[in-house]
Structures are given as structure tokens and as C-alpha cells.
Design a protein around this nucleic acid. Structure first.
Lengths: 333, 333
DNA sequence: GATTTCCATGCAACCGGTTGCATGTCAAGT
DNA sequence: ACTTGACATGCAACCGGTTGCATGGAAATC
């Protein structure tokens, strides 16, 4: 059985060191204001008593808790972990701590989480938010906000601009002789999905290809697997998926039907988070999920430091990474 | 440009409603102490002013912040997301909020994170901690702690007991005629790894099989892929991997060498988190990662409510889930 | 040696709530 | 009519820090 030690307060340290509470406080926050000997004495006393500054009390009087919140729709989606890692590392450099929230793709939960975090963080990063523009704007009046993959004017945001990469994907397929392709789409509330769909539409029409759009309920492996029949029904010889997870599902669905990739069918993912994990290795549109996390945090920290919100829109470019799931269209193979 | 509204305090509401600050406080926390009309009036005032209780201030005076921390070694490992989800859901039921920390398998980072969280959460769940027993014990004196997959006496813990499942896996392979098998192991600091290794050793020796142990630096896809040569070098016809991620890597490594699973080689994972995602679908030892998350949180909440720490050791059973990556040994096929 | 300057430290108010106790009011009890 | 009690509300201390201002002594200046 382990017994808990109750908190040592600044007063106890002050008594032990024979100084005022304010001096103890200063020893920790502005030691330059005190004589070295005093600091030394206070520190020694603090050490022996096992004093640790109370974060909550400090936050109350300074208004700064040194925390920032990061809210994502689905931790399980491989797009997010690298983003989260990078965010954490970046925050760390400035001694900020990340509080992570997971909304399970549920706007209600997201709203609740934002409210809950609002009181304990200095700022918030919303990644791929599924909230309405109005709700996001409302939250932005409460505390500094940075958005990832969501384009709302007036709110600082960092976006992965898939247009270029998706366009390359379409061109790649066109060059390989594919005439009919399909796009297995993502969540309708997703900015990325709208953007990718638009890019693929434009590309297909520019190259004179026939394009079918297959909807899915959510960007998951299962959804991809279940979309395969619909995809095959379109007569397409190649497919672009909203993300790698969906693409992976499609890969399995095809294998289950004994359709060999890439010989019989070509497939391209987006986000390039699983490229090296699938077999065959997935051709995919790169993203910079780690960069995005890092940049969003650094943007938020800048805002916190300067205390004013510029209307920044930071867009990252993408490109196609060709691996082993694309090859010439079967008909001309 | 969005402008921020600054906080409305309890005093402002009190003035507006013509009552004392304490009454406002009670209107929110113990409305039964006040007359319904007063509560009504206060609420109306609070509403129009847009008052929101300050979480930090409340936490300071009550000592309760309604947060609990959850620290995991690697969010990217598919074992954790379901656990995290379940933990979040369970915490939610009691109106607690989860702060998630990721240590990137780094004990230093874990130590730092614990210290950082300690001040802002009422209790902490450490999942698959890579810290030493001593460090964990030290932290346990600071705040209520619950461990997942770490067996330290005196600290409440919930464990996935893989012994039974791993034993079934070994028996399964033995029944299929495999005589030489390999175990691709996990992190040396991992309790789960020690436990699985012991179970497989016992099983192999009981069934008179030859067993080789292949070490890996971390439980990742890449590590699995790179372990393949070593595995093949042992002459084994089947392998059990520390976890599904590693198994997935091995699966790819084998495919790259044109070894067909399960015809030429059988493979079993652990944790059963990727079973349905790989192709062929992976035979794996089940776990209850969601249950574990839920139970750990509920245990912690009990401790917080009762204010005393019982020495609970909660072990969950496992079993083998047979899918498509295991079949009879080639020699007797 | 007297005056000014500076530096180290203490005092006390403050951050925004919560809560034990005191007070005042009104109705019930005798 | 007088006590008793229940109930609604206010007062003020407290949670554990931070910080502007005051103070006192030593060093620097003339």
C-alpha cells in the first residue's frame, strides 16, 4: 500500500527558509531579482521539503497555464498520430503541454470537448474539424484557435493543399492509359474531401477521362472494403481513394475478389501514411501531416505571444508518390 | 479578424443579480440551498452576461479539476486507439475529462509528462509504462495511479494476461505439425513481452517444439519487416510475433521474398487489432484493449471517490482467434 | 560625512471561485 | 405574545500562488 504525500505549499518553504512567500515565488520565477545566496537557501529548503509549485494556483494568478489543446476526429486514423507527435514536440520546445482530445468524428463530442478544454488551455488547435463554420467562429471568440484542414476566413489555418498532388495522380493514371476512373470519397463535412473531389473532377475532365464518384460513410478501412463492388460496377480500371486507409480497404476488397493489383487494377491513396505498410506498397499523394502539426502549434504559440490574431492561411503543397499499386491499364497492357 | 471576449466573473453576475458572490456560486453548485426564485434570477443574469465558471479557480479552491491523465507509449500503435476511446467514454460518464500524453516510447519523456500532468489531473493511468518500478512507485506517492499492463504490487493495475492465448497459439501451431517456431519479441521494458515470451517458452517446451527468440528494437511494422531474415534463418516454419504491428511487418517481409502465407509459412500476431485489416487476415491472440481502458478508468474513478488505494490486480483473459495466416506445416502439408 | 541611488526583500492585494459560520426572517410550536 | 427552528442569504477566510509598491540598508556620489 502506497501512501500519498500531500502538497507542500509556498508558505511552508518560506517559513523553512526564513523569507517571505513572495521571495520563494521569485526564487522560482525570477531568480535574478534575488541575491544568489537567498535563492540558494530557498532552493535548498524547497528541495528538502519536496516542494513543487502548484500549477493550478499559478495559472489562476497569471492566467497562463502553459497548456494547449489539440482536438482530432479520430486518433485511430493513421493520418493523425504523426501530426500529434510533431505537435507535441513543437509545443515541448516552448514548454507547453498538449492536451489531446478525440471526437470520434462526432460534432457534438467535439463541441463538448472544446468547451471543456477552453477553461484549461491557452489556445486550441482543431484538426479536420467536423463542426459548422458558425460553431467554430463562436469558439474562436472564446480563445485563440488554429485550424488544420479547414478554411475559414479570419481564423488562422494551415491546410494541406492536395490539388497539385491529386492532379498529378490523375495525370499519372491518364498517362498509363486509364480511361475510366473512380474516386472513393470521404466525409462530406471534410474540407479535404471537397478539395480532392474538385481536383480530381478538374483533372479527369482535362484529360478526357470518365469519372465516377463513390460515396462512403467515413474514411475507414471497412468503408473502403465495402466500396469495392460499387467501384467495380463503374467499369473503372483505376481508383483514387480519399485517404490511404480507405485505399487499404479497397486493396483487401480487390484481393478478396482475386483481382491482382496492379496488374488488373490500379489504386492510388491520399495522405501517404500507409504507403510502406501495405502490400503491394501503395501509390499515394504525399502530405505533410507532421509538418502541419508542427506549423499549427508554432502558429498558435506566436498568437499567444503577440496577443493578436492575424488572418494567416498557410497552405502546404503535395505531390504524387508512385509505388507499386499503379501500372498500365489492362486493356492496353 | 475575430475579437476575443474576456472572462465574466462571479462578482459581475452577483452585482447584476443583486446578490452576494457566494449565492452565485451556490446557484451553480448547490442550487437546492437557494430559493428557486433566486436561482432563477442568478441564472438569468449569468446567461445575459455570458458567464462561465472559471475552471482553474474552482479547481484551486476545491482541489478537484475533474481531469484524469492517460499516458501511452505510442498513439500510432493500433493497440492504443481503442483503449483511448474506451477510456474517454468511461471518463465522460462521470464527467471527467481525459488528458492524453504520448511518450514516443521514451522513458524520459514519460517522466516529464507525468510530472507535468501531476498538477492538473486528479489521477493518472499509465498504459504499458516503460518507466522503472522505482519511478512508478515514486509517482504513485504523488497522485492516484492505475497501471495498464504493468504488474507492480501495491499499485492498482489491470493486465491483459496473454498466457492462455499464447499457449493456445503454440498448441495450434503444434497441432498443425510445426516443429520449429520463432518468437519475434517486443520491447525489453514491456511487461507484456516478458509474459508472452514466458508463455511461448513454456508452451514450446511442453509440446516438444524448437523455439528461437528474435529480438526487435521496438514493436513496429518496420521492425517486423526487418526481422524476417533472422526468422527465416532459424529454419522455423511458423512465427509468433509480439504484436499485430510486428506481424504485419513480417507479413510484408515474407511477401517481398515471395513466400506465400499461409502455404509456405504460418504467422500469428498478438493483440488482435489488425486481424481484419491485413491480407490474408491475421491469426492473432485476442485482447480486450477497449475493456482495459474502460476498466482502468473506472478503477481510478473509484479510487478518487473513496480516497483510498486498494491493491487491486485485475487480469483479463485472452484466447486465440484463428484466421487465414496459419495452416499445416509445409513438410507435412 | 551627508545625500542619493540601487538592490534585495517584505507587505498586501489580487486571481475567481468555495464554504463554514453568522445573521436575519418568517412560520410553527406552546 | 415569546421562544424555537428552519431556511435563505451574506460575510469573510481560504485555496496557493504572483506582483506592484513600499521599505530599509548598503554602496555610490559629491
Amino acid at each position: 500500500m502506497i501512501k500519498r504525500t500531500k502538497g507542500v505549499t509556498i508558505s511552508q518553504v518560506a517559513d523553512a527558509a526564513g523569507v517571505a512567500r513572495s521571495s520563494v515565488s521569485r526564487a522560482f520565477t525570477r531568480p535574478d531579482m534575488l541575491s544568489p545566496e537567498t535563492v540558494e537557501r530557498i532552493m535548498r529548503a524547497a528541495e528538502t521539503l519536496g516542494y513543487v509549485p502548484n500549477h493550478t494556483a499559478r495559472a489562476l494568478s497569471t492566467g497562463r497555464h502553459g497548456n494547449i489543446g489539440l482536438i482530432v476526429p479520430d486518433i485511430a486514423n493513421p493520418f493523425f498520430p504523426p501530426l500529434i507527435q510533431a505537435a507535441q514536440t513543437e509545443a515541448d520546445r516552448s514548454d507547453f503541454c498538449i492536451f489531446l482530445g478525440n471526437t470520434a468524428e462526432n460534432p457534438k463530442q467535439e463541441d463538448k470537448l472544446v468547451g471543456r478544454f477552453a477553461g484549461q488551455v491557452e489556445g486550441l488547435v482543431l484538426a479536420s474539424s467536423r463542426l459548422s463554420d458558425e460553431r467554430i467562429r463562436a469558439h474562436a471568440t472564446q480563445l485563440p484557435l488554429v485550424l488544420i484542414n479547414r478554411d475559414i476566413e479570419g481564423i488562422p489555418r494551415v491546410l494541406i493543399d492536395s490539388s497539385a498532388g491529386v492532379r498529378q495522380a490523375v495525370d499519372h493514371l491518364a498517362d498509363l492509359g486509364h480511361r475510366k476512373i473512380a474516386y472513393v470519397s470521404g466525409p462530406s463535412a471534410s474540407w479535404s474531401n471537397k478539395q480532392r473531389r474538385a481536383a480530381i473532377r478538374a483533372g479527369a475532365s482535362a484529360r478526357g477521362m470518365e469519372l465516377s464518384i463513390i460515396p462512403t460513410p467515413a474514411p475507414t478501412y471497412q468503408a473502403g472494403r465495402e466500396a469495392v463492388d460499387a467501384v467495380l460496377g463503374t467499369g473503372a480500371s483505376a481508383v483514387v481513394a480519399f485517404d490511404d486507409l480507405t485505399a487499404q480497404g479497397i486493396l483487401t476488397g480487390l484481393a478478396e475478389r482475386h483481382i491482382v493489383v496492379p496488374r488488373d487494377f490500379s489504386i492510388i491513396g491520399c495522405d501517404d501514411v500507409l504507403g510502406a505498410v501495405t502490400f503491394p506498397a501503395l501509390t499515394s499523394v504525399s502530405n505533410h501531416s507532421a509538418d502541419v502539426g508542427r506549423i499549427a502549434i508554432s502558429m498558435l504559440l506566436d498568437i499567444l505571444r503577440s496577443r493578436n490574431v492575424a488572418d494567416v492561411r498557410y497552405a502546404l503543397d503535395t505531390k504524387l508518390v508512385v509505388r507499386d499499386t499503379t501500372t498500365q491499364a489492362p486493356s492496353i497492357g
